[in-house]
Amino acid sequence: DKAMLVREAFASPYGKALTAELGKSLRASADPACLTDKALTADQLEPRGRDIVITWGTRMLDGAFALIDRQTSDNPFASAAELESLKSSADVKRYLAMEAPMRQAKILDLIFEHFDRYNLISRVRLGAVSPLATGNEALLRLNPADATEEKLEEFAGKSRSKALKRFLQLSEQAGAAQAAS
């Protein structure tokens, strides 16, 4: 369920930081006369902007994954069933739980990069949010992806779980097959 993935990503600490940045951009960019006309206050902009990005971001993920799903159904990954069944292993579950902040950060970066790029190309007068676009180091440091990846490598390196080893092996193959298709 992409809507839930996106909502969870926005509820994460990095999601909240990006939302605050979006709020800053909206407050700096909104036309004051228009705000008066619409009886909108500056503090209404952030939650409403967040809802807009969540709605459009969910639509974007639905569209992108529909494309990927169509391609993988044409070229199914041979060990898909085994990969799926390994997800019930306790070690794999723990690994996937540890991985969640990284998955969420990737979703958030993807959404805001596309949002910023569209706004730039379409001349929407809204400052960019994505820390990569703006060079916002403080915000970039809040991205948990690198730290999570290190923790995962350490966890996988120390683990003696055969299920986890096989899961990682198949995940890599599935990823390569998906990229190829």
Binding site: L26, S29, A30, D31, P32, C34, L35, K38, L40, L45, R48, G49, I52, T55, W56, R59, M60, G63, A64, H114, F115, Y118, N119, S122, R123, V124, R125, L126
Partner: peptide, 18 residues
């Protein structure tokens, strides 16, 4: 182009385009 049309929603928040 996943965000094509978002400017209409942003205009509701007084964000101008063009």
């Amino acid at each position: 182009t996943f965000f094509k049309g978002v400017e209409t929603d942003l205009a509701e928040l007084c964000i101008r385009s063009g």
